[in-house]
């Protein structure tokens, strides 16, 4: 029971991280290989604030998100104007920089040994509610003018500019939202495991998330979520050794790229609105109105 509950919680936290990546990669077509570093910032900052200053959990989380977004702005500012390859390369460098910074500042972060003693605040319920709220935000975002402009930018930057879309600004918006969501997932993670160390936030984590988004279907939020569930929970339940899990992932994804390039779900979205009408429940929707 303990095991299952922890698998579910980790999967939910992954879903939140992946929603950040979905907005950035799935909708806007940008790849951040330093996305996990923002998770690290969320985790370390909120953890350190609570442990070192005794600040209340929620306040620490909010401050951590704000700091992540500010750092995201500094990283994004020179890069969003340039061709999309730059954001992957720059965030990759950023990720390495953050990892080395975390390793070096032993007095604050515990260095390579990790940062421990974080109180356990994240419960299965909190993770579940957070994931649902994030899903709702993301599905509204997708159908908003912002989401449309993101897809337009992904599809054709030149045409997007010709339609009066300020592409640097849209890219920055998408990037900062994704940073905020991912750093929040970091805070949840830290307060669940009560211990974090720099090694888990490397570029491969970011790559894994991008793969999950892609695996489910680039444009589809439903697909991204299912992709995350399949690729997080399945290997966990099957108790694959970590290294084999990676190989299993990669082969699966290479097969998909070669034989079903639109991903598992393509552009399909779960018609939640219709399902709710079908059941005619008075309760509010659970998954947002995925169009």
């Amino acid at each position: 029971m303990e095991f299952i509950s922890s698998v579910i919680t980790f999967t939910l936290i992954s879903i939140i991280s992946v929603i950040g990546v979905y907005i950035l990669t799935g909708l806007t077509g940008m790849f951040s290989l330093g996305q996990a570093s923002f998770m690290a910032i969320g985790a370390y900052v909120s953890g350190a604030l609570v442990v070192k200053t005794g600040m209340p959990f929620w306040m620490a989380v909010i401050i951590a998100i704000i700091i992540s977004v500010m750092i995201g702005f500094i990283v994004g500012f020179p890069t969003v104007r340039l061709r999309r390859d730059y954001i992957s390369l720059v965030t990759l460098g950023f990720g390495e920089a953050i990892t080395s910074l975390l390793n070096q500042t032993q007095s604050i972060t515990g260095g390579a040994l990790g940062f421990s003693g974080i109180p356990k605040r994240t419960t299965l319920l909190l993770a579940l509610i957070s994931a649902i709220v994030c899903i709702i935000f993301a599905s509204y975002f997708k159908t908003s003018k912002y989401g449309r402009q993101c897809i337009a930018v992904k599809s054709d930057e030149l045409a997007a500019k010709a339609m009066g879309i300020n592409i640097s600004r849209i890219k920055m918006t998408a990037f900062l939202i994704s940073v905020a969501v991912t750093s929040y997932s970091g805070a949840l993670y830290a307060f669940y495991t009560t211990y974090v160390d720099p090694s888990i936030f490397g570029w491969k984590k970011s790559a894994e998330w991008a793969i999950m988004v892609f695996f489910g279907g680039v444009n589809s939020l439903t697909g991204s979520i299912f992709g995350t569930v399949i690729l997080t929970a399945l290997p966990e339940v099957l108790r694959f050794a970590a290294a084999y899990r990676v190989v299993f992932y990669s082969i699966l994804v290479l097969l998909i790229i070669n034989f079903k390039p639109s991903g598992l779900f393509g552009e399909y979205e779960l018609p939640v609105g219709k399902i709710i009408k079908l059941f005619k429940g008075g309760r509010k929707e659970e998954k947002g109105n995925a169009a």
């Binding site: 897809i151 337009a152 599809s155 054709d156 045409a159 997007a160 339609m163 444009n219």
Partner: peptide, 13 residues
């Protein structure tokens, strides 16, 4: 505003 010689519509929308 303009159109393009080689059609440039947004895929995915």
């Amino acid at each position: 505003s303009r159109t393009f010689q080689n059609i440039r519509l947004f895929k995915g929308l």
